[in-house]
Design a protein around this nucleic acid. Structure first.
Lengths: 344, 344
DNA sequence: GCCGCTTACGAAAACGGTTTCGTGTTAATA
DNA sequence: TATTAACACGAAACCGTTTTCGTAAGCGGC
C-alpha cells in the first residue's frame, strides 16, 4: 500500500525545502530551471497530488457546495440536483447532498454540520415541516455568517437571499385556461394538504382561471390529499361522486393515480375527462394515456441555482455589505400529450 | 455579518492559551472547574463550532464519503443513494455525490478529485463505458492508496474490494420460472445492448429457466434495446411480428413501454401477454395494468454498502495488510401485480 | 576589493484545530 | 523548613499547503 506523498516527502528526498517544492510545482519563476525539472519529474513519478483539505484550510474555500433537499427519490428534485451537479462539476465544485426528509430537525442538523467549514455555500429547497413551522432561524444564522445561500422551489419571503422559482400560479392558470379553451367546463383540482406553498400557488392559479372565465368555483371539486401517503379511498370517493370533465393535479403522481381511478370507474381519458399534471417526468411520458404535464424544467432550475451560488461565492472578496439578491423565475411550459387531446 | 469565531479568538478574549480553550471545551480534567465554565459559557454565547476542515486535516479523516453513480435520474440508483445517505448520516458522515453519466472519463476525473483527501472512502457503481473499456486503473490506484472502496450493482471481478450485488441471474430465473408455472410457454426477453453485466446476468437466468423447463430457446424472442435512448420502431416491429405470451424486461421502463406498445397493438395484458420487469419503482406501481416487478431493494443495498464502507473506514487503524473482502448478495424479490395475473 | 543587483532558494507564519510534554504554583508531607 | 506530588495551565509540534520575506551566492562595474 503506497501512501499519499506530500510536499514534505519530496523535499526531504530531493534535499530542498518545502517551499521550493511548492513553488517548483507551480512553475514559479523564482526557482531555477534544473531544480524545477528535477522536482516536477519526481512529483510525476510518484504521482503527487496536493491534499485538498490542506488547500481548503489555507484558502478558506472548500470547492464544495451543500445541497439540502426534502427528498431524493422524487423526479423533480432529482432533475434539479442533476442540473446543480453538472454545472457545479464543470466549475470544479463538488456537491454534498443531504436529504432533510421533509423534517425540520434534519434540515437544521444538516445545515449546522455543513456550515462549519465543509462547504462554500448552500442550495436548498425547504422541508415541508419547516414551511409549516415557519421557523427559519437556521437559515438566518447561515446567511449572517456570510455563507451564500440559494433557495429553489420551496422558498420563503422571510429570508433574504437568491432564489429560483417557477411561475407556479401562472403555469396553473395557463393550464386551466387551455382546458377551458378546449371546451371543458367542470374542472376539478387535486392538490396537497395545506402547507406546501407551491401547491398553494398552483391552487391560486386554478381559481383565478376559473374566475376570469366566469366559471363557478366549487370547493367540492377540489380534492386535498396527504402529501406522500396514499389515500386511495378518498380519491375513489371523490371521483365516483362528482361530475367533471377535466382535472388539474399539482403533481404527476396524483395525476397518474387519478387517471387510473377514473378509468377503472369506466370513464375514458381524455374523451370524458382530461388530465393535466405538474412535474413532467417519466410517469407522464409513459402512462396510458400519456399525460399532459407542466414541465418545471428542473435541470435548468438546478443549473440556474448553481450559477447564482457560484457567482456569489466567487465574488465574495469584494462583497462587503452590498447585499443584492435576485429571484430568478423559470417559466414552466405545458407539454401536451394524449390526456388532453381533442375538443369537447 | 458576524464571522465564525475560532479558538484563537476565545483565547485572546479570555486571556488564556489556545490549548486551554481546546481542552476546556472538551471538558478535560486538566482544566480547573471555574476556567472551564468561563470558557464554555463564552463559547456558547458566541456559538463557537470547531472548523471541520481543520479537524479533518489533523485527524486525516474527513467524515465524508464519496458516491459515484452513472445516473441520478434513475429510480434504482436514487433509492440506493437514499440508503447510503441515511445510514451515512446516522453515523455522522456526509455524502459527496458525483455523477459519471456513464462516461469513463468523468468517472476517472471525479475519483481523482475526491481521492486527494476529500473523502474517507468510495461507494460506486461502474459507468457503462468503464465496463465496456474494461479499464479499472483508476480503481486500482485508489485501493492501492488504502482508500476503502465498495462497489455495488455494477461491479467487476478485476478489483478486489467489498461488493454488494443482487442475485440477478437467479431473480430472472425465478421470475421466468413463475411465468412458466402459470402456463406461459412463449416467453420473450427485452434486454439492453451488450455491455452491462447486470443485463447479461438477467439474460442468463432467463435462458437457464427456459432450458431447465424444456422450452426452446429462440434468439428471435430476444429484443436488445439501446440502454438509454428510445427506439420505439424497433420495439414495435418486434412485438408486431412475433407471437408470445409473456415478456421479461430487464428494467421497468422497457416493461412499461413494451406494455404500452402491445396494448396499442390490440393485445390484452395480462390475458394475452404477461409482463415482468426489473426495478420495482413508481412506474411499476402506477402503470396500467400495474406491473409485476423484481424488487432490487435498492435502499437496502445502499445501506449495506454504506455499512461495509464505514466499517472498513473505522477499522483502518489496525488493518495493515489483512485485506479481507466480502461480497454481499441482496436477494431480489418478485412483487406480483396485475401484469401477470391469472393462469393460462 | 567594495558595492549593489540579480538569482535561487529557505525560514517561518498562517489556516484552525489537537495533543504531548514541560513548568510554575500550591499544598501536603517528612 | 525542605521535598514532593498534584493541579492548572501554556508552549510547541503537527496535519499539508501557500506565500511573504529574508539572505547567501555569484557577478558585473567601479
Amino acid at each position: 500500500m503506497k501512501r499519499k506523498i506530500t510536499l514534505k516527502h519530496i523535499a526531504r528526498e530531493l534535499d530542498v525545502s518545502i517551499s521550493t517544492v511548492s513553488k517548483a510545482l507551480k512553475n514559479s519563476e523564482e526557482i531555477g530551471q534544473d531544480t524545477k525539472e528535477k522536482i516536477q519529474a519526481f512529483a510525476r513519478l510518484y504521482n503527487y497530488r496536493p491534499n485538498n483539505i490542506a488547500i481548503s484550510l489555507k484558502n478558506k474555500k472548500t470547492k464544495n457546495i451543500g445541497v439540502i433537499i426534502p427528498d431524493i427519490v422524487h423526479h423533480f428534485f432529482t432533475t434539479v440536483f442533476r442540473g446543480i451537479e453538472q454545472y457545479a462539476n464543470a466549475k470544479g465544485y463538488n456537491v454534498i447532498v443531504c436529504v432533510s426528509d421533509e423534517s425540520f430537525d434534519k434540515e437544521v442538523i444538516n445545515m449546522e454540520m455543513l456550515a462549519n467549514g465543509s462547504i462554500d455555500g448552500f442550495i436548498m429547497a425547504l422541508a415541508g415541516e419547516t414551511q409549516l413551522k415557519n421557523d427559519y432561524n437556521h437559515l438566518k444564522e447561515v446567511t449572517e455568517q456570510g455563507i451564500p445561500l440559494v433557495l429553489f422551489d420551496r422558498v420563503t419571503d422571510e429570508i433574504h437571499c437568491d432564489k429560483v422559482i417557477i411561475n407556479d400560479e401562472e403555469a396553473a392558470y395557463l393550464a386551466v385556461k387551455k382546458l377551458i379553451a378546449s371546451g371543458r367546463k367542470k374542472i376539478a383540482l387535486v392538490t396537497t394538504e395545506g402547507y406546501l406553498n407551491v401547491s398553494a400557488k398552483r391552487t391560486e392559479g386554478y381559481y383565478r382561471a376559473l374566475r376570469e372565465h366566469g366559471l363557478e368555483v366549487k370547493p367540492d371539486l377540489v380534492l386535498e390529499l396527504p402529501y406522500q401517503k396514499e389515500d386511495d379511498k378518498k380519491s375513489e370517493a371523490f371521483f365516483k361522486n362528482r361530475s367533471m370533465d377535466a382535472v388539474l393535479c399539482v403533481n404527476e403522481i396524483f395525476a397518474v393515480k387519478s387517471m387510473g381511478i377514473v378509468q377503472r370507474l369506466g370513464k375514458r381519458v381524455p374523451e370524458d375527462i382530461a388530465f393535466v399534471g405538474f412535474t413532467d417526468g417519466i410517469l407522464s411520458r409513459l402512462s396510458t394515456p400519456t399525460l399532459t404535464s407542466v414541465d418545471q424544467h428542473g435541470e435548468l432550475m438546478g443549473e440556474t441555482a448553481a450559477r447564482m451560488l457560484i457567482e456569489k461565492i466567487e465574488n465574495d472578496h469584494d462583497q462587503e455589505e452590498e447585499e443584492s439578491y435576485e429571484t430568478q423565475i423559470i417559466r414552466a411550459t405545458l407539454v401536451e400529450r394524449e390526456s388532453t387531446l381533442g375538443q369537447v
